[in-house]
Amino acid sequence: GLEHMADEEKLPPGWEKRMERSSGRVYYFNHITNASQWERPSG
């Protein structure tokens, strides 16, 4: 619901949600550090 939507907005600075086109899996990418990970970043 709306709570989940708001929660997605609160990623740490630099992080954004991305989708891997080949598999459709969602991952997280940090455009500041060029880091990427499957787990939702905390902090």
Rank of each mutant, 00 (worst) to 15 (best):
S36V: 15
R25H: 05
S36I: 15
K17S: 06
G43Y: 14
S42N: 10
M19S: 08
P41N: 00
E9I: 08
V26D: 07
G14I: 01
E39N: 05
G24R: 05
D7E: 10
G14A: 04
S23D: 06
R21V: 15
R25Y: 04
E3F: 01
R21Y: 11
I32A: 07
L11M: 05
W15Y: 01
Y28M: 00
G43E: 13
R18Q: 04
G24N: 07
P41K: 00
W15E: 00
G24T: 03
E9C: 14
L11T: 02
G43D: 13
H31L: 14
K10A: 13
E8K: 08
R25T: 05
M19A: 06
K17V: 11
P12S: 02
M19Y: 15
V26K: 04
Y27P: 01
L11W: 02
S22I: 13
D7W: 06
V26E: 13
M19R: 11
M19L: 14
W15H: 00
S42M: 11
V26M: 08
R21A: 15
A6S: 14
Y27I: 05
E16K: 03
K17Q: 10
W15K: 00
W38F: 11
Y28A: 00
E9Q: 09
E9T: 08
E39A: 05
D7K: 09
N30F: 03
F29N: 01
S23Q: 04
E20M: 08
N30W: 01
P13S: 07
E3V: 11
L11G: 00
R40H: 10
G1R: 11
I32Q: 08
L2M: 13
Y28D: 01
G1M: 12
H4Y: 10
E3L: 06
E16V: 10
A35D: 09
T33L: 05
Q37M: 06
E16S: 08
H31I: 15
G1W: 10
Q37R: 05
E16A: 05
E3D: 10
W15A: 00
E9W: 05
P41D: 01
E3A: 13
Q37E: 03
A6E: 11
Y28L: 00
R40D: 05
A6L: 12
E8T: 10
H4A: 12
K17L: 09
Y27L: 03
L11D: 11
S23N: 06
K10M: 13
K17G: 03
R25D: 06
S23M: 04
D7M: 09
S36T: 14
S42K: 09
P12H: 02
G24Y: 01
S23W: 02
G43H: 11
K10F: 10
L2C: 15
R21T: 15
P13G: 05
G14W: 05
D7T: 10
D7S: 10
R40I: 08
W38I: 06
P12Q: 02
P41G: 00
L11R: 00
W15M: 00
A35F: 08
E8F: 03
A6F: 13
G1C: 15
E20I: 11
R21S: 14
H4S: 13
S42Y: 10
H31F: 14
Q37F: 03
M5I: 13
L11K: 09
Q37W: 03
R25L: 09
E39V: 05
E39L: 05
R18A: 04
K10E: 15
W15L: 00
S23K: 04
A6Y: 13
S23A: 03
K10V: 12
I32H: 09
R40V: 09
S22M: 09
H4V: 14
W15P: 00
G14L: 02
